[in-house]
Amino acid sequence: MESSTEQPEPLGTLIEILEDAEYKVEQPLPGVLRVQGRFSNTERIALQAAADAGDQPVAIWAISHHDDWTLAAWDRPELVTITQRGPAPQRWRHRQLPPQLQPNAPTFLEGAASRFDIVTRPKHRPTDAARAVLESFGITEPAPPGWEPPVVEAPPVVESTVPVDTKPTRSPSGRTRTPKEPKAPAKPEPVVAVCPTCFMALPATGVCDNCG
């Protein structure tokens, strides 16, 4: 009589490690884990989980309680990470690791650049090679299933007026100062007509008394 033994889950040990850390773990696709918990550095969680898988190919979505996320796809030597923080653009990074390095190397956990990075211009943009790594896990879009980008609302416009102080002011001596009324405009001086010949003032008749 033949006996059959149940094959262990390839990522069973990794799932136990994550659940022991009190993270919620789901497996939406074979070799793909979705990890949620109260953490802020999603890239660090995803890279550490990839390292805990050893050389087992794995893709991990790490989603924080702020709804930020990182997807780390690890299939030695290929390591692809995509990070989304709030409404900022996605940050792609593709590395090719030598045999002695793991995804949780300090340089990678700190988010720093390394000589193992495949540099793109502009920086941190997706490449066909990086997308091919995701597709090997059955992932066509880097965002976690069901995730929606946050809606950024413009701040409301608040109109405010500066109150006008109508109270009389007091001088240092304690006397109340009342606002001075504006002075009336000065009356223009009358224009006196003069004779164009002798330059004497003309009478009201307009005829010069000297010149006629």
Rank of each mutant, 00 (worst) to 15 (best):
A46M: 06
E9H: 12
Q102F: 09
N210D: 08
E153P: 02
H66I: 10
I45Y: 00
N104E: 15
G37I: 06
A112H: 14
E22A: 11
V25W: 00
P99K: 12
L33E: 04
Q48A: 12
A105Q: 07
G212V: 06
A143W: 02
E19K: 07
G212F: 02
T13P: 00
R125M: 13
F116L: 14
G54Y: 02
R95C: 08
P144H: 07
P103I: 03
E141A: 06
N210F: 05
R125I: 14
Q90C: 13
P163A: 00
Q56I: 09
D55Q: 14
T176F: 01
G212T: 10
Q27V: 11
N104P: 00
P89V: 09
Q7N: 08
R38E: 15
R91I: 11
A73R: 03
Q36C: 12
P155G: 02
P188Q: 14
T140I: 03
T120E: 04
T178E: 13
P122G: 00
R121M: 11
S40P: 03
V191R: 13
W92C: 11
T107R: 10
L14A: 03
D68S: 11
P150K: 10
P190K: 05
W92S: 05
G86K: 02
E110H: 15
S171M: 12
E9C: 07
F199L: 06
A130L: 02
P172C: 04
I82L: 10
A193F: 03
A88G: 09
T176I: 11
T81E: 12
I15R: 03
K180P: 02
A88L: 14
S114M: 14
Y23F: 13
L202N: 15
I60D: 06
Q27N: 04
D52T: 07
T13Y: 01
A62N: 07
P182I: 04
E43S: 14
